[in-house]
Design a protein around this nucleic acid. Structure first.
Lengths: 214, 214
DNA sequence: GTCTATAGTTTGATAGAC
DNA sequence: GTCTATCAAACTATAGAC
């Protein structure tokens, strides 16, 4: 009997083509907006005719769906790189841990507007993520919530407020500060406001270092 | 000589038709999404053929533009109704004033998703508000900023953080709480976090009533 | 001011040859 | 798996009659 070859060259080629298609779609989204992706444009960029895309994705929405899953997967992956540092700080300096996670969220969001829109806003008419693509986003939120709540005895309500504050800052960045650092400069203060309120101790200044000076 | 008639019936009819067109557009936006408005659909609802709309608006974007100006005008108008109460509280209980303004912003935003998207997000490809339609939004922001900064000696940075917090809560409402009250219930606490940090006194409890209980 | 007719695009998707 | 050919639909906008 013939042994199974170690590498499946056909599958590899298929995966590579799929990758090219998604990259082209992201490129269009970044250049012209998330909702401006068209199959013809995608096909052009990968050197195909539009109908050929149907050999790789069953519909346009399936492309959006793959992008959605990918975006949350990227968030998960980039956070994993930071996880060691965060874990090390969790017990010793929870406030510094929060700031690290907050900055990561902000930087990741701000780096790619259409990605953020796809992940967190409902902009594409008719698009609803499939359960499979939705899974990473659920994992991320569950993990974030349980770990943040464990930092002190922080309520779920306060976790939601933290998420709101970060999302709000990202909004302001895209609305009034694109390419700038004005909003980024407010991040630490905003997180400290929250940390003070939920009673998160800080190593450098245990009480409320950011109360207004008188 | 003939006197000018007191009422211009032609102009009145024109204004009424314009009103009908805008109402139809809002209706479609609420039913199907802001970007789903089509001239045919608008025309159908007002009992016209699509090309007839061009007697009232020079382009589809002009309809969006009118809607944009209208939305900020509505905000201005609804806030004006509240202004007496806010002004009365400003000196005596600035924290209560902030909460009133915050609730108004939140309630107004949450009442109409496409309106909020048109006002604060850039969802419609190619749409840029005209200077005339943009004017009310500038007025609202300028007035809000100067009055809030005058409540205590609050910095512009902290004003921006307040705007971010509110926008973030609205986001969370639309993402995870549509039709619910979960996020609304967090509003007072979030505003208090901010008020504590900027040193806004409260009549009922001058210091930090919302610090975590131990 | 509203109509009909239509130009001129653009779009997502399918059929079938190779 | 990619192609050509094409469908069927939708869209904004203009021209010109009434």
């Amino acid at each position: 009997m013939l042994g199974t070859p170690k590498r499946d060259r056909v599958a590899e080629r298929r995966a590579a083509t799929r990758r090219e298609i998604l990259d082209a779609a992201w490129e269009i989204a970044r250049e012209s907006g998330l909702t401006q992706i068209t199959l013809r444009d995608v096909a052009d960029r990968v050197g195909m005719q539009a109908p050929s895309l149907y050999s790789h994705f069953p519909s346009k929405m399936a492309i959006y769906d793959a992008m959605f899953g990918e975006a949350w997967g990227e968030y998960e992956a980039t956070f994993a790189q930071l996880d060691g540092k965060v874990a090390a700080l969790e017990a010793d300096d929870p406030r510094a841990a929060m700031l690290l996670v907050s900055r990561h969220f902000y930087d990741f969001a701000v780096a790619d507007h259409p990605r953020y829109q796809l992940m967190n806003e409902r902009i594409v008419p008719g698009f609803e993520p499939s359960p499979e693509s939705y899974a990473p986003s659920v994992r991320v939120m569950e993990d974030g919530r349980s770990r943040i709540m464990a930092l002190g005895d922080i309520s779920e309500a306060d976790f939601t407020i933290w998420v709101s504050i970060l999302g709000g800052l990202v909004n302001q960045y895209f609305a009034n500060d694109q390419g700038g650092t004005r909003i980024h400069a407010l991040l630490a203060r905003a997180v400290d406001m929250w940390a003070d309120a939920v009673g998160l101790p800080s190593k450098s200044a245990p009480s409320s270092p950011h109360r207004r000076k008188r």
